[in-house]
């Protein structure tokens, strides 16, 4: 694998979607290329930042009630 290919598939690696031959040749390249090793870490970091910084919005309690009510209404109507 060359640096160009690493750039193309780096998110596959960071998302743990890479396996088999591709993973082996990715890891072989990254082991000898500091620039691509940095790229791989950077991709993982970016994913972590999105995951951690985008606070999850919890559903309002009322929404659960609304859903259950409408489902049971449907059910009764059947």
């Amino acid at each position: 694998m060359d640096c160009h290919k690493v750039r193309e598939v780096v998110f596959l690696y960071a998302d743990k979607e890479m396996d088999g031959e591709l993973l082996i040749s990715f890891e072989q390249h990254v082991a000898i290329c500091p620039e691509c090793a940095r790229r791989a870490v950077h991709a993982e970091r970016l994913i972590m930042v999105v995951r951690k910084r985008c606070g999850r919005q919890m559903a309002p309690a009322d929404l659960r009630r609304r859903i259950l009510t409408s489902l049971r209404h449907r059910e009764a109507g059947n």
């Binding site: 559903a59 309002p60 929404l63 609304r66 859903i67 259950l68």
Partner: peptide
């Protein structure tokens, strides 16, 4: 029902407002 929060969170980030997100999730369930 265990997926209400996940669906709502995605709906909220897509519609960017709570009311639309709630309607969208309710419609999804129905």
């Amino acid at each position: 029902m265990p997926f209400v929060d996940s669906l709502y969170n995605t709906a909220y980030r897509m519609t960017r407002n709570s009311e639309d997100a709630q309607d969208l999730v309710q419609e999804t369930y129905l």
